[in-house]
Simulated scan of single mutants.
Amino acid sequence: MKAYQHIIIIVSLVLFTIIFYQDGYGSISFLFAAIYLCVIFVKEVKRYRKSKET
């Protein structure tokens, strides 16, 4: 992913936190953030392993 895509996702998660936190649903955006970070981590590990093999 390009850097601007990461920035857009992070900014939207922060906005979701601010908006949903007032209604008591702030944990939903933290769940989305955790899923996003896990996906990014898995992709980076796969890319690292692939570059290590060749």
Rank of each mutant, 00 (worst) to 15 (best):
M1Y: 04
K2L: 08
K2I: 12
K2Y: 11
A3V: 12
Q5W: 09
H6L: 14
H6G: 09
I7F: 11
I7C: 06
I7K: 03
I7N: 02
I8T: 12
I8N: 05
I8K: 00
I9S: 09
I9H: 02
I10T: 03
I10V: 10
V11Q: 00
S12W: 11
S12A: 14
S12M: 11
L13F: 04
V14T: 05
L15E: 13
L15N: 07
F16H: 14
F16Y: 07
F16L: 13
F16K: 09
T17Y: 13
I18K: 09
I19M: 09
I19F: 14
I19S: 10
F20I: 14
Y21L: 09
D23T: 15
D23E: 04
G24I: 09
G26Y: 03
G26I: 00
S27W: 05
S27Y: 01
I28M: 12
I28A: 14
S29I: 02
F30S: 08
F30P: 00
L31W: 08
F32M: 14
A33V: 04
A33C: 05
A34G: 04
I35M: 04
Y36I: 01
Y36W: 01
L37V: 06
L37Y: 01
C38V: 11
C38H: 03
V39P: 03
V39T: 15
V42K: 01
V42M: 01
V42I: 05
K43M: 05
K43G: 06
V45S: 03
V45C: 00
V45F: 06
K46Q: 05
R47K: 15
Y48C: 08
Y48I: 05
R49G: 01
R49E: 04
R49V: 10
K50Q: 08
S51E: 04
S51T: 08
T54E: 12
T54G: 03
T54N: 11
T54Q: 07
